[in-house]
Amino acid sequence: MVNERQTDTCADVMYRRERQRGCGEAGLDFAPFIPSQDEVDQQMSALDDKLVSKAQEQYANREIYPLDECYQLDGSTFISAEAFEEILGDEQTHYMAWKNGCIDKLSIDYWEMPDVMAYLVERSIAEGDGGECCYTDAQPIDYAEDCAYSPSEMLECLGANWQEQGVADDGLSYALYGHPNINVENVSGSMMVVSTEQPGLSVMVDYRSGIWVVQPFAHDESFGSAIQFGERLAPVEAGLLRPNVYQHFFGGETCV
C-alpha cells in the first residue's frame, strides 16, 4: 500500500507540473507549482532506491574503472554516468539538490526554477566535505576490499610502510576491474589469485625484498618460470597485477 501511495504521489506531481507547463504555453496565468516536502521526499527516495540498486550491481560486476568519470551518490557509492542519466532523466538537478540536503521549507519554493536548483547543487558541492552527490572520477572505488586477502595485509606482515601497502591495494583494485570472477586468498602468507570460472588455474603472488614474484599454478602444481617485477612496475602504468601478465595463466577474457 505504501508503494502504491508513493507511485500515486509521483504521478500527481508530474501531472500538476505538466498542467502548469501546458497553461504557460497557452498564455494562461497560472501560479507556479510548488510540491510539498513529503511529495519531493517520496519522489526522490524512489529514484534514489533505483540508483543505489544499480550502483550496487555495477560494483558487484566491477563495471566501473577506478579512473573513469562517473557520478558519486555519496562518499563510497558510484554509478556510471550513463546509468545515472538514464534513471533520472530530467530530474538530475532536482535529485542532486535533494541528495545533498539543499531542499528545505524555504528552498522548496524554488523547486521549479532550474537556475536556482543548479546553484544550490554547485554550492553544496563547493562547500561540502567530499561526500556529496556529484560528477567526479571513481578513484576511491575499492574492489580489493571484497577479496578474502589483500596485498596490504601481506605487506603489513612483512613490515612494509603504509604507502607501499596503499599502492599495492590500488594495483589490485585496478586489475580487478571487469573481472567479478576473481578472488584473492591467503595461502601460507602469500596471495593466491583464483578464478571461479577456471578453478584449476591460479597465480601465487609473493613479495621478496622489494621484488614481486608471480608464479602460475595448475591444479595445485606450479608450472613454468616465476615472473619478477621490480618496484618501478607498480601501478598505475604497469600494475601490481597487470592484466596482460595474467592472460598467460588464465587465458582469454576470463583472465585477471
Rank of each mutant, 00 (worst) to 15 (best):
M1L: 13
E4F: 12
R5Y: 11
Q6K: 15
T9V: 15
Y15P: 01
R17P: 01
E18A: 09
E18H: 06
E18F: 07
R19E: 09
R21M: 03
E25P: 00
E25C: 02
A26N: 01
D29G: 10
F30E: 08
F30R: 09
F33W: 03
F33C: 08
S36T: 15
Q37D: 14
D38H: 14
E39Y: 11
Q43K: 10
M44I: 01
S45M: 12
S45F: 12
V52C: 02
S53F: 01
K54C: 05
A55T: 01
A55F: 04
A55H: 02
Q56L: 12
Q56R: 12
Q58G: 05
Q58E: 11
Y59C: 12
Y59K: 14
N61G: 14
I64E: 06
L67K: 06
E69N: 10
Y71H: 02
L73P: 02
T77P: 03
S80V: 01
A81S: 09
A83D: 12
A83E: 05
E91C: 10
Q92V: 03
Q92Y: 00
T93K: 02
H94M: 07
H94I: 04
H94P: 04
M96N: 03
A97Y: 04
W98C: 02
W98P: 03
K99C: 02
G101W: 06
C102T: 03
C102V: 01
I103L: 05
Y110V: 02
W111S: 02
M113C: 06
V116Y: 00
V116S: 03
A118N: 02
L120D: 00
V121E: 02
R123V: 07
I125P: 04
A126E: 10
E127R: 09
D129L: 11
D129G: 05
C134M: 08
D137I: 07
A138C: 08
P140A: 03
P140V: 04
D142C: 08
Y143S: 13
D146Y: 13
Y149N: 09
S150G: 09
E153T: 12
M154L: 11
E156D: 14
A160M: 10
N161E: 14
W162C: 11
A168L: 12
D170T: 15
S173W: 05
A175H: 07
A175T: 10
Y177Q: 12
G178H: 14
G178L: 15
P180Q: 06
I182D: 09
N183D: 15
S188L: 06
G189I: 09
G189L: 06
S190T: 13
S195F: 08
L201K: 12
S202L: 07
S202W: 10
M204Q: 07
Y207G: 05
S209D: 07
W212I: 10
H219D: 13
D220W: 01
G224V: 00
A226D: 00
G230V: 08
R232S: 15
R232Y: 13
R232Q: 14
L233D: 15
P235F: 09
P235S: 13
A238H: 15
P243E: 14
N244Y: 11
V245I: 09
Q247D: 15
H248K: 11
F250A: 12
E253L: 15
E253V: 15
T254C: 15
T254S: 15
